[in-house]
Nucleic acid binder design. Structure first.
Lengths: 346, 346
DNA sequence: TTGAAAGCGCTAACAT
DNA sequence: ATGTTAGCGCTTTCAA
């Protein structure tokens, strides 16, 4: 650490008044010097700057914002920006917010587990995945937009509902067409099967002989070697699943990232994709076109989701969208449909 | 768009005083109602909330921040969050900032080309890649930290200098050891060869017979099909380079992403990696372990870079680090060394 | 060129 | 349970 020793620090942060006193001028003169405004003599300016330096003065953004009316801010609660889907989404949100003159403040929900403390006080609207705990809609609470919201979520929240149905039907028929008959699902979740996995299994059941679709749930809180081991074990079980032990011939992973890891696991085992096992992801990442084989996926459009989310957040904030969801609760609702993107892996 | 028609909007945003007047109470009572504070009768609260609703009232974050002293904010200027290196870096910065009680505001430099307008007024410190144009250090300007800064950058900026030397030496010796003798560089840049490419060529020159290292520069502003075409053409040229037309037997790409695209291009051509051509990336992304073959890379540590950057930003902000860089200018300087991570592709 | 006064919108502390 | 007072730190009039 290259730091200078702290030394005796003033208990209170220096304000513009402190600087003014020290420089022997008025507050306005300090403002002039600091903001490169005209109408101040070079001598005075120097004196003021020296005083500011000596007092380790930093202007208060709040004070300045109050009088200059700062642009509003969206708080984006993201669980893992390293996940390519979130970065695509986040990028699109920054862009959308920017178009409306808003800024985007990020908080990673893993950093401070659960609801992000104080975030609701630092921003003018919140976007995130449910559940958002204390950020539930309240009186003075900021508008909240839920991504991938359940149908029955509180209509006082903006909700972007993801519709898997059309893509799921397409996937089932695609798999049927290529003769897959032993589908399985590899889920990632912290507590039991995700809603996504439930939908996937239900959609794929008609393909399976006994209507049973094997499911493995990976704990998505695991990292590194632990995560690798859990994934490998799950894959092992899926490849030996079923009464006849023939194992899955089509595996749908919770998301593209997991699907890509699956591709590697299968290759290591000498299992050919898609000949022996078909692999399908969810998200539709650009990344899916870079791997070999390229990844078939249930794709969503991060830009459209972002547009909906930002539109809802700002609309509710500005009261252009009724914050009770309107008479039927649909004013705060947006739907986004996945679509099947068939590439090489299935 | 599900919006309600705008209707006659008040010219001025409603303040707490407007709500108080409309509800026939004092400002304090409004605060109590809105913030779920005790000591207010249910009747009054309802009346206040109704008034707030009717006036489309939203509390001013600035006003509130002023009296509650909000935590400071780092503005992160990022060129492309979709690039996995940036998302790793951004994630790490959020984490580091959070530890110090700071928030991170994002701006994508591509959105608003050049220096991000007003960003300097919305945040308390700035982190980004040079050049940052108008955000140059000034009187009242916020502290600025430059990532991947040139050695001679303004010492009034915090600077995280990336040191390629050790990794470059290791790479050269590694390639020499495996018998590569026709290295080439595939660069990505908007205007002529990047500094990184210059260093790479210089380091690899001793391997090449005539000391000449072929270089192709891709325009990194291209997207989609155009980018694909440019890349393919460049690869074609690299594979046919040299007087004898034998082409490159080791290609170092500007970054991992480009290297991974390269892997695909080579596979499509039936060129075996690493047997016929070795491929090396720069960044050391986790992603490099997911592709086949796994990617050899000049790796940096996003967490360490983030730690340095945030530490500098906050240190300078708090005047714990002298903002003139100290006597020799090194107080505002941090070095980060790349290291060679050898995996399957080279 | 400089200063004094006024006020941005909100909340904490202290009355009533 | 409600109102009054005071003040957060800064900039923008307006006066000198």
């Amino acid at each position: 650490m290259n730091r200078v020793p702290a030394g005796p620090r003033p208990a209170r942060r220096a304000t513009i008044v402190d600087v003014a006193e020290r420089a022997g001028v008025s507050r306005q003169t300090v403002t002039r010097a600091l903001n490169d405004m005209p109408g101040i003599s070079p001598t005075t300016r120097e004196r003021v700057l020296a005083a500011a330096q000596a007092l380790a003065y930093r202007p208060s953004r709040s004070g300045r914002a109050l009088v200059r009316s700062e642009t509003p801010v969206i708080g984006l609660i993201v669980s893992d920006l390293t996940n390519a889907f979130f970065s695509e989404l986040a990028t699109a949100m920054i862009r959308e917010a920017d178009r409306a003159g808003w800024s985007v403040l990020f908080a990673e929900s893993r950093v401070t587990a659960g609801p992000v403390p104080y975030l609701g006080e630092r921003v003018d609207a919140l976007i995130g995945y449910s559940p958002m705990g204390e950020h539930a809609p309240g009186n003075a609470a900021v508008p909240v937009v839920l991504l991938d919201a359940p149908e029955d979520a509180d209509p006082r929240c903006g909700r972007v509902v993801l519709d898997y149905e059309p893509a799921l039907t397409d996937l089932r028929e695609h798999l049927r067409g290529v003769g897959a008959s032993r589908p399985a699902v590899l889920d990632a979740s912290a507590h039991g099967p995700s809603q996504r996995a439930v939908l996937l299994r239900a959609a794929l059941a008609p393909l399976a002989a006994a209507g049973q679709v094997p499911l493995e749930v990976l704990d998505d809180r695991l990292r590194g070697a632990e995560a690798d081991a859990a994934r490998e074990a799950a894959l092992e079980r899926l490849l030996a699943a079923g009464e006849d032990g023939r194992g899955a011939d089509a595996i749908v992973a919770f998301n593209d990232r997991l699907a890509i890891e699956l591709l590697r696991g299968l290759r290591r085992r000498g299992v050919r994709v898609p000949e022996q096992v078909r692999v399908i992801g969810v998200d539709g990442l650009a990344l899916g076109e870079l791997v070999t084989p390229t990844l078939t996926s249930l794709a969503s459009d991060a830009h459209e989701i972002a547009r909906h989310a930002v539109d809802l957040a700002i609309g509710i904030y500005e009261h252009a969208i009724p914050s009770d969801g309107g008479p039927d609760g649909t004013a705060t609702l947006r739907r986004h449909a996945y679509r099947l993107v068939v590439r090489e892996s299935a």
